[in-house]
Amino acid sequence: QVATSTVRILGMTCQSCVKSIEDRISNLKGIISMKVSLEQGSATVKYVPSVVCLQQVCHQIGDMGFEASIAE
């Protein structure tokens, strides 16, 4: 089973930030795809909930120095 959710990301300033986040999160087990939008300050994450949760994704992004939260 696959889920798609949006994560809000604060602190991104350039495409390099976007690429860094996409590269790191895409390597997590259970992540199918991730598309980060600098303009919208968010990311669309396609993932397998039984393998990885959005809290883990937000935590990983937080470790990179950005502020991440699950969009309502």
Results as ranks from 00 to 15, higher is better:
Gln1Asn: 07
Gln1Asp: 15
Gln1Arg: 07
Gln1Pro: 15
Val2Gln: 07
Val2Met: 07
Val2Arg: 02
Val2His: 09
Val2Asp: 06
Val2Gly: 05
Ala3Met: 14
Ala3Leu: 14
Ala3Asp: 06
Ala3His: 11
Ala3Thr: 12
Ala3Lys: 11
Thr4Glu: 11
Thr4Val: 12
Thr4Ile: 13
Thr4Cys: 15
Thr4Asp: 04
Ser5Asp: 10
Ser5Glu: 08
Ser5Ile: 08
Ser5Gly: 15
Thr6Leu: 13
Thr6Gly: 05
Thr6Glu: 09
Thr6Tyr: 15
Val7Thr: 00
Val7Gln: 00
Val7Met: 14
Val7Ile: 14
Arg8Pro: 04
Arg8Phe: 14
Arg8Lys: 09
Arg8Tyr: 13
Arg8Ser: 08
Arg8Glu: 06
Ile9Asp: 01
Ile9Pro: 02
Ile9Gln: 00
Leu10Val: 10
Leu10Ser: 08
Leu10Tyr: 14
Gly11Cys: 06
Gly11Arg: 04
Gly11Tyr: 06
Gly11Ser: 03
Gly11Thr: 03
Met12Val: 03
Met12Ala: 00
Met12Tyr: 03
Met12Cys: 05
Met12Gly: 00
Thr13Leu: 10
Thr13Pro: 00
Thr13Ala: 05
Cys14His: 03
Cys14Met: 03
Cys14Gln: 02
Cys14Asn: 05
Cys14Thr: 05
Gln15Val: 10
Gln15Lys: 11
Gln15His: 13
Gln15Tyr: 14
Gln15Ser: 10
Gln15Met: 15
Ser16Ala: 12
Ser16Met: 13
Ser16Leu: 11
Cys17Trp: 05
Cys17Met: 05
Cys17Phe: 05
Cys17Ala: 05
Cys17Asn: 06
Val18Ile: 05
Val18Asn: 02
Val18Asp: 00
Val18Ala: 15
Val18Arg: 05
Val18His: 02
Val18Ser: 11
Lys19Ser: 09
Lys19Gln: 10
Lys19Gly: 05
Ser20Thr: 12
Ser20Val: 09
Ile21Phe: 03
Ile21Gly: 02
Ile21Glu: 01
Ile21Tyr: 02
Glu22Thr: 09
Glu22Ile: 08
Glu22His: 07
Asp23Ala: 13
Asp23Phe: 11
Arg24Asp: 03
Arg24Glu: 10
Arg24Gln: 10
Arg24Thr: 09
Arg24Gly: 09
Arg24Lys: 13
Arg24Ser: 10
Ile25Thr: 03
Ser26His: 08
Ser26Gly: 13
Ser26Val: 08
Ser26Phe: 06
Ser26Asp: 02
Asn27Ala: 13
Asn27Asp: 09
Asn27Trp: 07
Asn27Phe: 09
Leu28Met: 13
Leu28Trp: 06
Leu28Thr: 06
Leu28Arg: 02
Leu28Ser: 03
Leu28Pro: 00
Lys29Cys: 07
Lys29Val: 11
Lys29Asp: 12
Lys29Pro: 12
Lys29Leu: 12
Lys29Glu: 11
Lys29Met: 11
Gly30Asn: 01
Gly30Trp: 06
Gly30Phe: 08
Gly30Ser: 03
Ile31Gly: 00
Ile31Gln: 00
Ile31Glu: 00
Ile31Thr: 01
Ile31Arg: 02
Ile32Leu: 09
Ile32Lys: 04
Ile32His: 03
Ile32Ala: 00
Ile32Asp: 00
Ile32Ser: 00
Ser33Asn: 07
Ser33Lys: 09
Ser33Ala: 09
Ser33Glu: 09
Met34Lys: 00
Met34Leu: 09
Met34Cys: 10
Met34Asn: 00
Met34Ala: 07
Met34Phe: 15
Met34Glu: 00
Met34Asp: 00
Lys35Thr: 09
Lys35Asp: 06
Lys35Glu: 07
Lys35Tyr: 07
Lys35Arg: 11
Lys35Ile: 08
Val36Phe: 05
Val36Leu: 04
Val36Asp: 00
Val36Cys: 08
Val36Asn: 00
Ser37Trp: 08
Ser37Tyr: 11
Leu38Tyr: 09
Leu38Cys: 06
Glu39Trp: 09
Glu39Ile: 10
Glu39Arg: 09
Gln40Arg: 14
Gln40Lys: 14
Gln40Pro: 04
Gln40Glu: 11
Gln40His: 14
Gln40Trp: 13
Gln40Thr: 12
Gln40Phe: 13
Gln40Leu: 13
Gln40Asp: 10
Gly41Glu: 14
Gly41Pro: 01
Gly41Thr: 05
Gly41Leu: 08
Gly41Val: 04
Ser42Trp: 08
Ser42Ala: 10
Ser42Pro: 03
Ser42Cys: 12
Ser42Val: 10
Ser42Gln: 11
Ala43Ser: 04
Ala43Asp: 04
Ala43Ile: 06
Ala43Thr: 02
Thr44His: 08
Thr44Asp: 06
Thr44Gly: 04
Thr44Lys: 11
Val45Ile: 11
Val45Asp: 02
Val45Pro: 01
Val45Met: 05
Val45Lys: 02
Val45Tyr: 04
Lys46Ser: 14
Lys46Arg: 07
Lys46Asp: 05
Lys46Pro: 04
Tyr47Glu: 00
Tyr47Pro: 00
Tyr47Ile: 02
Val48Met: 15
Val48Asp: 15
Val48Arg: 11
Val48Phe: 15
Pro49Met: 06
Pro49Leu: 07
Pro49Asp: 04
Pro49Gln: 07
Pro49Thr: 08
Pro49Arg: 08
Ser50Ile: 06
Ser50Trp: 08
Ser50Thr: 10
Ser50Val: 05
Ser50Asp: 14
Ser50Ala: 12
Ser50Gly: 11
Ser50Asn: 07
Ser50Lys: 07
Ser50Glu: 15
Val51Pro: 00
Val51Leu: 13
Val52Phe: 04
Val52Asp: 01
Cys53Glu: 09
Cys53Lys: 12
Cys53Ile: 08
Cys53Phe: 07
Cys53Thr: 15
Cys53Gln: 10
Leu54Trp: 06
Leu54Asp: 00
Leu54Tyr: 04
Leu54Pro: 06
Leu54Phe: 04
Leu54Asn: 01
Leu54Gly: 01
Leu54Thr: 01
Leu54Ser: 01
Leu54His: 01
Gln55Glu: 10
Gln55Asp: 09
Gln55Asn: 08
Gln55Met: 12
Gln55Leu: 13
Gln56Phe: 15
Gln56Asn: 09
Gln56Leu: 10
Val57Leu: 06
Val57Lys: 03
Val57His: 03
Val57Gly: 02
Val57Ile: 14
Val57Met: 03
Cys58Lys: 13
Cys58Trp: 07
His59Arg: 15
His59Leu: 15
His59Gly: 11
His59Trp: 15
Gln60Phe: 14
Gln60Thr: 14
Gln60Ala: 15
Gln60Ile: 15
Ile61Leu: 10
Ile61Gln: 03
Ile61Phe: 04
Ile61Arg: 03
Ile61Trp: 04
Ile61Gly: 03
Ile61Asn: 02
Ile61Met: 04
Gly62Gln: 15
Gly62Lys: 15
Gly62Asp: 13
Gly62Ile: 15
Gly62Phe: 12
Gly62Trp: 15
Asp63His: 15
Asp63Lys: 14
Asp63Met: 15
Asp63Ser: 12
Asp63Ile: 13
Asp63Cys: 07
Met64Gly: 01
Met64Ser: 01
Met64Phe: 04
Met64Pro: 02
Met64Ala: 05
Met64Leu: 13
Gly65Pro: 01
Gly65Asn: 03
Gly65Thr: 03
Gly65Trp: 04
Gly65Tyr: 05
Gly65Val: 04
Phe66Gln: 02
Phe66Trp: 04
Phe66Met: 02
Phe66Ser: 01
Phe66Cys: 03
Glu67Asn: 11
Glu67Ser: 13
Ala68Arg: 04
Ala68Cys: 15
Ala68Glu: 02
Ala68Leu: 05
Ala68His: 03
Ala68Phe: 06
Ser69Asp: 06
Ser69Tyr: 14
Ser69Ala: 08
Ile70Leu: 10
Ile70Lys: 03
Ala71Val: 13
Ala71Trp: 14
Ala71Asn: 12
Ala71Gly: 09
Ala71Ile: 14
Ala71Glu: 12
Ala71Ser: 11
Glu72Ser: 11
Glu72Tyr: 13
Glu72Arg: 07
Glu72Val: 11
Glu72Ile: 10
